[in-house]
Amino acid sequence: MPTVLILDDDDAVRESLLYYFEDLGWGVHGAGTAEEALVVARQINPAGVVVDIRLPGMDGCSFILELEKTHPHVACVICTGSPEYQPPDYVLIRPQVFAKIFSKPVSDLGELAESMRQHIMNCNVKAIHD
């Protein structure tokens, strides 16, 4: 199974997602800030990242743009506690960003994991063709 990085500043949410993906057999790593997540991504080269948007310091959208510079094919799935939130178009148009935005609390973790799995496969196919 692939490795996923969970970026969320809420310890309880991050741990819950880490445990869920771990129970599915995924490799898991967590980070509470975007800055920490960039360091972890360089160390582990994740296949996917669950990205919270509202974070202390660098926000989730800025994280995605920074991650793209070193990991252009890492699948990113946005999961936010702001149900009305819509990322800016310059983030949404990036192929590594999954089209659906998940709201916290995530009511269907199975859908989140399956979306991540499918998006990782799509990003891997794109990486092969680039």
Score class of each variant (00 low, 15 high):
G27H: 11
L18W: 01
G48T: 11
Y19K: 14
V13P: 05
A31W: 10
E22D: 14
A37V: 03
E35H: 14
A34W: 07
V13Y: 03
A31M: 07
E35M: 11
G27S: 08
D23A: 14
R14W: 02
D9L: 01
V13C: 08
A31S: 11
D11N: 14
D8M: 09
I6Y: 01
H29P: 00
G32I: 02
D11M: 12
D8I: 10
E36A: 15
E35Q: 14
N45L: 11
D8N: 13
I6W: 03
A41T: 06
V49C: 11
A41H: 00
G27V: 07
G25M: 10
E22K: 14
G48N: 09
G27M: 06
V40G: 02
A34F: 07
L18T: 13
D9V: 08
D8T: 08
V39G: 10
S16R: 10
V13I: 13
G25F: 11
G30H: 06
V28N: 02
E36Q: 14
L7Q: 09
Q43H: 11
I44C: 05
L7V: 14
G48W: 06
I44V: 15
Y20C: 12
G48C: 09
A47G: 13
G25H: 09
V28Y: 00
E15F: 08
P46W: 05
G30M: 09
G48D: 09
G48V: 04
V13D: 03
V49I: 07
A37F: 00
G32E: 07
A12W: 08
D11K: 15
Q43P: 01
E36L: 00
I44F: 02
E22H: 12
A31F: 06
G32R: 06
A47M: 06
D23L: 10
V28P: 00
E15S: 11
D10H: 10
